[in-house]
Simulated assay, not measured.
Amino acid sequence: MRATFTLGRISGVRIGVHWSVLLIFGIIAFGLAQGRLPQVYPGHSPVEYWVAGLGAAVVFFASLLAHELAHAVVARRNGVVVDDIVLWLLGGVARLKSEASSPAAELRTAGVGPLVSLVLGGLFVLGAWLLAMVSAPELLVEVVAWLGGINLLLAVFNSLPAAPLDGGRLLRAFLWWRTGDRLRATAGATMAGRVLGWLLIGLGLVAFMRGGGLGGLWLALIGWFLIAAATAEGRQAQLRGVLAGVPVRDAMTRDPLTVPAALTVADLLADPLYRYRHSAFPVTGADGAPVGLVTLDGARQVPPENSGAVTVGEVMVPLSRTTVAGTDDSLADLLPRMEPGAEHRVLVMDKGRLVGILSLSDISRTVTWLMNAAPRP
């Protein structure tokens, strides 16, 4: 699940939002402001209903963020590096740069999310009861009670044993413990996710045809997202299984062509050596050490009238924002950190020296070679 846009960072973890969050945010705010709140507590102004609805939606997504941050904190304590957190239609996902080292670590990392949602739900329910006891504004009581219910529902839904939900990871931890095979365990959790997705689609369509209205279509939409996410997770697991034990040096492009940081953008774009070979190049400083990565698309963003005065060093992606790997690093562990696009090339270093560059197409070629070279029954 890739983020559509980024909100910022918390404790070094990038927080991203998928476009589907905007859909659910609007549905929550509209449903409360124009549906539930006026029905339960009529007589208030539209502004009050909308303030309550928008506030509930914001706090709900803060609850989702707390859920995912709990995953990130426990993952770090178990030696797993967290890449980012992406909020999406079904809640959120903490993308990990590596796998848990054991079924127990997987269990702890996956289980803490629903636990946090359960605790938050209980606190919101308690808060609603206390607010009602002191005769707080009725809209406030209703919103806090709704937040309690939705967090409890989130805890239950995320505990369903199907990937990519937390319950799917709990199922994977159990299957991993029983079989000793992480790949088989992932395949089992992925299959459960697809089955649950198709079940939700079927139930949603039946409910819609029987007069369930948008509720049935909403259930089917959740099922569709679940199938897509489970399928993507399953494919990545298969790739990681194929690439298990393969080092980066076996897939990288060796001795890549580099660009001096002091070269002007005009010279970069005019030189056929750069124009016709690749779409991204490592950038080196005066001492020859890598300092970043430049893409031809990024260079072309410079207005032609300024390209003679702007250097490559000014338009490159700095090394601090570029993925760097070692020659002996595992391709399977590196794969979750890689993204499409020339700006996401991986620079391969050996003892501080640039020795290669790696793209998703390099990994694709390696996978094709490995599958064709595998012995056939």
Rank of each mutant, 00 (worst) to 15 (best):
T6F: 13
G8H: 06
I15R: 04
W19P: 13
L23Q: 07
F25H: 00
I28V: 15
A29I: 03
Q34I: 06
Q39E: 13
V47S: 12
Y49N: 05
V58T: 07
A62R: 14
L64N: 11
L65W: 07
H67T: 00
A75R: 12
A75Y: 06
R77C: 04
N78P: 02
V82Q: 12
I85H: 07
V86R: 03
L89F: 15
L90I: 11
A94D: 02
S102F: 00
A104S: 12
L115A: 15
V116P: 03
V119M: 05
V125M: 13
V125H: 13
L130Q: 14
L131G: 01
G148W: 00
L153T: 12
A155V: 04
V156G: 08
F157H: 02
A162D: 06
P164T: 03
F174A: 14
F174V: 14
W177I: 08
T179G: 07
D181L: 07
A185R: 04
L196T: 10
W198A: 15
L199K: 05
G202E: 08
G202Y: 05
G202V: 01
V206I: 15
F208R: 14
L214Q: 14
I222Q: 13
W224A: 15
F225W: 05
A229R: 09
A230K: 03
T231K: 15
A232I: 07
A232C: 04
A232F: 05
V242M: 05
P247K: 01
D250Q: 13
A251H: 06
D255I: 07
A261N: 01
L263R: 06
L263D: 04
L263G: 04
A270N: 13
R275G: 12
S279M: 06
A280T: 00
F281E: 02
F281R: 01
A286K: 02
G288V: 00
A289F: 12
A289Y: 06
G298Q: 11
A299K: 01
R300S: 07
R300N: 06
N306R: 14
V310M: 04
G313E: 04
G313Y: 11
V317Q: 14
R321H: 14
A325C: 02
S330K: 08
L331C: 01
M338K: 10
E339D: 11
P340K: 05
E343Y: 06
R345S: 12
R345N: 11
D350M: 07
G352P: 10
V355M: 01
S364F: 12
T368R: 14
A373R: 14
P375N: 10
